[in-house]
Design a protein around this nucleic acid. Structure first.
Length: 539
RNA sequence: GGCGACAUGGCCAAGUGGUAAGGCAGGAGACUGCAAAUCUCUUAUCCCCAGUUCGAAUCUGGGUGUCGCCUCCA
């Protein structure tokens, strides 16, 4: 059983049942989780960020609860969009897909999105896909059309359209799709698309695959249809039945309904996934963000202005199913929230002798994890006592309760604010330590990184070496000779701060202000503290 | 045409039957040589109308408005 200290049960909204169901893994404590990954034909945008941050939080929270999570996320590296883009660029599809796969990895890492247990690439599962297609044809759920396309016959699956919540008649009534004469039914979808080899420029293994190579001689060379990859990868790596299948709202229909149809028709196991979860979209100033409207921001662009914590906070202040409106005011608000806490945490930690006994903040964070996740009291305290026990249960229970309510991250963030205040405003050392460690640990469950010191818009201090030397030369020409001694930028800054402290002590306001303004000019903001040394931060 | 979501203070956003979390911004004060940072205090009756109820932001009906899916999209 998962290590839980509370009686709360995790409830997750299930699109399949349209209610927030109590989550119970099929093979407790193992959780099998599959997330539909990106089609790698372009840069990842804010919508991707929301999607993968959302499921990252679910992944982290499940682990926090003590579950053993097997999390598979795919890379769709075979798709018409990839072929088209590659043709436009005049490059090989595999090269294009490879490039954007690497970009995706880079950007996810920068966003502090944890790697899944396993990442699967569609092109590496052609065999399992063909195997499923063959089974579906054999069972009468799919057929080979006159043009050799293999279609799934939707009327053969009587529960078709269950996620969408509409029956076949309604779907057809509102059909805006042109009827393909090859299809037996308008809603039938392709499992395997034949390739026209007459041109002679297509590359095997990139634009098409020969089923004969996989022992499927009944199909012609071609490429997989849109939906079969997820079914095949999920089945191969996680088995016929899984606990969680997640993705964007737009995937509900037809993608996920098609996955259900083909998987369940193939394996005979129902339900294919116990729980289907979908994250809401990102809008831009009230409008849908889409490539056709050209109003999307890539994650890489955003990261030049806002840090990963800011983007995450912006996303998590909304419940994951609600639409999120992207606008600069909201991002700026998020940035202020992050900055205030990130900076103050480090300032206070450095000034706290008690905390310093644990070494670096990273070391402290490790102890915090041992304490909060594993309930190891000795990680942070001499011994457990009743007060600590009560507070542990109370603080952890509160966080777990909020998150167990279908991942109510806005309320979990409100908890974080309270813990932050407990650290910065309360006086009792034990309570402060409790709150600070809880803040670090619970924020990490939400995927924040407050342990790494903040890096502001000013970038590396080294970049301002010359300016610092010049300033030091101006305000203290006697003791510190510019350009000598190989002083690091940091020691230069410390020397300047020391000079200012002397100037202030002797009421030499001119020099003091000169230093403050001079540093301000290169983006360094000084923070004078009432009872402590002057610290600095990027403005 | 079919299906669905949402409407809470200046902005963002929880709450879903017992009289409105949190954040950001703003205002006042403390601190400061002056600032900044920090700290303290501080701002709403929940789109409109009708109904159910002892009691509704929270349920029901109607209205208005915004948005999404049904076509590639996270």
């Amino acid at each position: 059983m998962p290590v839980t200290t509370t009686a709360q049960q995790l409830r997750l909204y299930n699109t399949r049942t349209r209610s927030a169901d109590v989550f119970k893994p099929i093979n407790d404590p193992t959780v099998l989780m599959y997330v539909c990954g990106p089609t790698v034909y372009d840069e990842a945008h804010l919508g991707h960020a929301r999607c993968y941050i959302t499921w990252d939080v679910l992944f982290r929270f499940l682990k926090h609860l003590g579950y053993d999570v097997k999390y598979v996320r795919n890379i769709t590296d075979v798709d018409d969009k990839i072929l088209n883009r590659a043709a436009e660029n005049g490059e090989a599809p595999s090269a294009l897909a490879g490039r954007f796969t690497r970009r995706f990895h880079e950007v996810m890492a920068q966003l502090n999105v944890a790697e899944p247990t396993l990442e699967t690439k569609a092109t590496e599962y052609i065999g399992p896909m063909l195997e499923m297609v063959a089974i579906l044809v054999e069972k009468g759920s799919a057929y080979v059309a006159a043009d050799q396309t293999v279609y799934f016959h939707t009327p053969s699956f009587n529960a078709y359209g269950q996620l969408k919540g509409q029956n076949l008649d309604d779907l057809e009534a509102g059909a805006r799709v042109e009827v393909d004469p090859n299809k037996k039914s308008p809603l039938d979808f392709a499992l395997w698309k034949p390739v026209d080899l007459s041109g002679g420029t297509l590359v095997k293994g990139e634009q098409y695959w020969d089923p004969a190579d996989y022992g499927c001689r009944q199909f012609v060379p071609g490429r997989p249809g849109w939906h079969i990859e997820c079914s095949a990868m999920s089945r191969t790596e996680l088995g016929d039945q899984i606990d969680l299948h997640c993705g964007g709202l737009d995937l509900i229909f037809p993608h996920h309904d098609n996955e259900i149809a083909q998987s369940e028709a193939c394996t005979g196991v129902h339900p294919f996934s116990q729980v289907w979860m979908h994250n809401g979209f990102v809008n831009v100033s009230g409008e849908k963000m889409s490539k056709s409207l050209g109003n999307f921001s890539t994650i890489a662009e955003l990261l030049t202005v806002y840090d990963a914590n800011t983007i995450r906070y912006f996303i998590l202040t909304n419940k994951y199913r609600s639409p999120v409106d992207f606008n600069e005011a909201a991002l700026d608000s998020a940035q202020n929230w992050v900055k205030k806490r990130h900076g103050l945490i480090h300032t206070m930690y450095e000034a706290d002798n008690d905390a310093q006994a644990f070494g670096t903040m990273a070391a402290f964070a490790q102890r915090a994890t041992a304490f909060w996740r594993d309930k190891n009291f000795s990680a942070l305290f001499d011994q457990a006592d009743q007060t600590l026990e009560v507070l542990y249960d109370e603080l952890k229970g509160r966080f777990d309760e909020k998150m167990s309510n279908d991942l109510n991250t806005p309320e979990a963030l409100a908890d974080l604010n309270e813990l932050f205040h407990g650290f910065t405003k309360e006086n009792d050392p034990q309570y402060k330590k409790l709150c600070f460690s809880a803040f670090l640990y619970f924020s990490s469950v939400l995927g924040f990184d407050f342990v790494t010191p903040p890096v502001g818009a000013g970038g590396n201090l080294e970049a301002h070496q010359a300016a610092l030397e010049a300033l030091l030369g101006e305000v203290s020409p006697g003791d510190h000779v510019a350009g000598q001694g190989g002083g690091s930028a940091d020691s230069l800054l410390q020397a300047i701060i020391a000079v200012r402290a002397e100037a202030r002590a002797s009421k030499n306001w001119a020099v003091s202000d000169q230093i403050r303004d001079g540093l301000g000019a290169i983006g360094i903001q000084l923070k004078d503290q009432k009872d402590g040394p002057t610290t600095w931060d990027w403005a």
